[in-house]
Design a protein around this nucleic acid. Structure first.
Lengths: 247, 247
DNA sequence: GTCAACACTTTGTCCTGACAAAGTGCAAGG
DNA sequence: CCTTGCACTTTGTCAGGACAAAGTGTTGAC
């Protein structure tokens, strides 16, 4: 009748980590390690709260956190169920560099252009800054596994982050933004496809007319400040976008 | 000093609509109508709660709701700020049909194949169902504005929703799923590009080798049950994906 | 004039308590 | 046998209070 059984959970009330987060993290561990049966039900939140020695609101908040991440589903009058693992997976706002590095593909960056200039109109509009605002504008050729993969054009307002050519050759743009505390929290992307021009094909080591993926993106930080505009071109034969959507 | 000024807000305590939601909706209206200055600060939550005659938790929940939707930003010790409108816009899990209908492009659907059959291995795996599970498998050619736009292959488990050929010819798949209460809440998509084969090009009214956008998707409902698998092909010259990401 | 300590404002966390609403299952009545 | 209604369980909503933590600005010492 009780459904799930919850093993010992140790909470540290002296820790600066919020209680509800400690509870949520512990629950998440148990679920991911498979100690809580998938599809099974959690104990009801009142008992759970009592047993862990926290108040019901705190327990609710912990559960709510996991519901938002897609790990749990609640139904009034029924209970809380554990969702099949396949469904989960948070939306990550990551950059190509991060993705490549994570999958062990050894990214390499070749800087083709690097200048500080007033933003062209369409870029200023995309960034939501006044026309003529100074941006760092650069074009990079990204290699993975020794082969060219993408041509990337980017603009970053100079007052958001002063970029140095050397940094960009050795690190991903998002990595640099994060390090500076200008963390991208929201992004608007348009993904399309077209045939490569002769020049593009030559740079990518592909043949003329080969299909390429196009992606233009504007990214904002948590305060709504635009931090980056990008217009990228990927070899379709070597790259595709994977993304998780939640309503 | 107070920053934003909040006009009269009428709350209906007899309504079944939760108080926090009434407050959130009203706030959202005021912001979207531009009555609250963008970039401006809200009153602090304690005063706000007092003035509206609700408790602080309720007020917090209303604000939290708008924070999650990207309309507000809060900083401890500072206050709550209204984010620039450009950044907002919720991720919508919509279908091509909905999108076209909304933008007034008059979608038309031509059914090329419609059968009930055991799911092929790779589709069964994508859906997370046992091999051989019965699915409705169909291929549609989607027109917009009189011209072909996409070739769409889809599989829907029969025990999720029994589909009829006639319905699919006149409605979008997502529309039908929603009407049946199997609402897609989460989806995993892979977007890529390649050159069209001769057969594909002929169907799409394009030339052989023309770039096409490919998209494969699995969608789940709120309980984690897979409701749809799709493998679509779009004319790159006429379609692109627009999406908003949040971390 | 500069810098550090302190006060103040504002959001974050956490508690207790109470009632409402929705789903489930059982039992009584037709 | 089927349906209706009631009881029970479980999550949802709401209130009020208390203290903590972080950011801002001011004041005072040097």
């Amino acid at each position: 009748m009780t459904g799930g059984f919850l093993p010992e959970v140790a909470l540290d009330r002296t820790s600066p980590v919020p209680l509800y987060f400690q509870v949520a993290t512990r629950l998440q561990q148990l679920i991911e390690d498979g100690e809580m049966p998938v599809g099974g039900r959690l104990e009801n939140e009142v008992d759970l709260a009592t047993r862990l020695g926290v108040s019901r609101p705190t327990m609710r908040r912990a559960i709510q956190y996991l519901v938002e991440r897609g790990m749990l589903v609640r139904k009034r009058g029924v209970g809380t169920q554990i969702v099949h693992p396949k469904v989960r997976r948070p939306v990550e706002l990551s950059s190509l560099y991060d993705d490549l590095a994570k999958s062990g593909q050894e990214p390499r960056t070749e800087m083709r252009l690097f200048e500080i200039r007033p933003a062209p109109d369409h870029i200023a509009e995309a960034l939501g800054v006044p026309e003529g605002t100074e941006v760092t504008w650069f074009e990079r050729l990204r290699y993975a596994g020794g082969e060219p993969l993408a041509i990337m054009h980017n603009a970053v307002p100079v007052d958001v982050l002063p970029l140095r050519r050397e940094d960009l050759e050795q690190h991903g743009l998002y990595e640099l933004l994060r390090a500076a505390g200008r963390i991208p929290r929201m992004a608007n992307q348009v993904v399309g496809a077209r045939a490569a021009t002769t020049a593009e094909a030559r740079m990518l080591g592909d043949s003329r007319g080969a299909p390429v993926l196009t992606m233009t993106r504007t990214a904002w930080d948590e305060s709504g400040r635009a931090v980056e505009y990008g217009s990228h071109l990927y070899r379709a034969s070597r790259y595709s976008f994977e993304l998780t959507l939640t309503s």
